[in-house]
Design a protein around this nucleic acid. Structure first.
Length: 206
DNA sequence: GCCACCGGTGGC
DNA sequence: GCCACCGGTGGC
């Protein structure tokens, strides 16, 4: 049911769209943002938690304020930021006055500043966050923020939200640039299908 | 083997 | 309750 974001709410100026979009929709769109891939069919055996999608809420996004990064460099999204940040959510004692501090302490914004993304409509920002620890330390995650503050973790999410207002077929999610030369191949994955497990059980029985 | 993507948890 | 972060799956 939900109307396509692209339909009526893609207007960057819309702001607040969030609440309507998914926020309150709560379940409404449950599957949209995230399970779009196909897992939408099957209800999660675990629980109905959904994060990204409905999340938004109206919580302000300015908690960690963007420090100085924001408009700072319009250079481009392709930038590589490499600053180490602080560990997850540690109650690190922040030097007061430091940029990027928030109620929760140093945020990822420290390592990845939000930058404008020319390939996307005005108001969209890209942020790259370097993982600081764990098995995937060194890896980086890329996020995009809509003018309304909604966060997107993947291209599918982005595409779903933008609808046909923007052609992302050649959009490189990591760099934030259009790469006509290499139209991306679909690297979507199919989540485990519960049905398969069923199959497994049957086999076992035999 | 690499990388895109999503799930889930811990911490606030 | 919300959100950032990391783990791990699955396609290429």
């Amino acid at each position: 049911m939900r109307a396509h974001p692209g339909g009526g709410r893609c207007c960057p100026e819309q702001e607040e769209g969030e609440s309507a979009a998914g926020g309150s929709g709560a379940g409404g769109d449950s599957a949209i943002e995230q399970g779009g891939q196909g897992s939408a069919l099957a209800p999660s055996p675990v629980s109905g938690v959904r994060r990204e999608g409905a999340r938004g809420g109206g919580r302000g996004r300015g908690r960690w304020n963007g420090g100085g990064g924001l408009g700072g460099d319009g250079g481009g999204c392709g930038g590589s930021s490499g600053a180490g940040g602080a560990p997850r959510r540690e109650p690190v004692p922040f030097p007061s006055g430091s940029a990027g501090l928030g109620p929760r302490g140093p945020r990822a914004t420290e390592s990845g500043k939000r930058m404008d993304c020319p390939a996307l409509p005005p108001g969209w920002k890209k942020e790259e966050v370097i993982r600081k620890s764990g098995l995937s330390a060194g890896k980086s995650d890329v996020y995009y923020f809509s003018p309304s503050g909604k966060k997107f973790r993947s291209k599918p999410q982005l595409a779903r939200y933008l609808g046909n207002t923007v052609d992302l077929s050649s959009f490189d999610f990591r760099t934030g640039k259009m790469m006509p030369s290499k139209l991306q191949k679909n690297k979507q994955r199919l989540r485990n299908d519960p049905l398969n497990q069923n199959k497994f059980v049957c086999t076992s029985l035999l």
